[in-house]
Amino acid sequence: MSYVFTVSPDFSPDHLPGWFVFNTWMQRVSGLRFHLELMDHFSDLRRAVEADRIDLIYANPHDAAMLVREKGFVALVKPGDGADEAVIAVSADSPFHRVEDLEPESRIATTGDPDVHLMGMILLEPAGLNRENVTLHHCDSYVLVAKRLFRGESDAGIFLARAFDELSRPVRERLRMLVRSDIQVIHHYLMAGPRLADRVDDLRDRLTAMGDDAKTAEILKGLGVSRWEAVDEEEVEFMIDLMDTLSYSPA
């Protein structure tokens, strides 16, 4: 039997080869056949999940909620490198120096990354900004968000904090950060679907042991992950509750 493994489309292109190496390692140690299928768009991923085609996924927090509550997935591990956070940045020569300087009708550059967008919109709330009173420009990458800011095409941009930190120095120097979130509990998770239910403990044990020798530590480095940390059901449920509070908008 072959299983389908995928990665949330928000992964860094620098880590693309790393996921193929990781998939090979997973197959070797587990004795299971995984087919790594990477998708360019979040909409493609949703369709694959809806069709119950996915068995193993490195999921963003937004999708993790749906996978647990609607599709019976179980979280195996999370990266031990800190939580997902968001940054609001402007062009270095922008007249805006704090979020509260932004006004309704602002032009906001964002990506299709749903959890980062959600966190970013929370960071914009103190300025009275919401999805009803801003113009959103959806970009395919964080570099394109940055470019819209340089060109004066957007007033502020929403970045994954890690992606903002990894922008090249010339790009970073043309930007100014207004605020960085410190939410602490929102993570990506590596998750297993119902067809892998009887392999969850074995997979989790092998994953958490990955940092123990130099060779597997190198594989993790290729993913931008220092180590995997085991997670329990309640931790994921807690994050889902928290995400629900952030996305709640009274009718």
Binding site: P126, A127, G128, F238, D241, T245, L246, Y248
Partner: peptide, 23 residues
């Protein structure tokens, strides 16, 4: 924002999340 923590169909507690308000 306060949300009930529903586990296996039962409320087992509440999570409260506060963020910066608009002035």
């Amino acid at each position: 924002t306060v949300i009930p923590n529903v586990r296996r169909g039962r409320i087992v507690g509440y999570t409260s999340v506060r963020r910066k308000p608009e002035r």
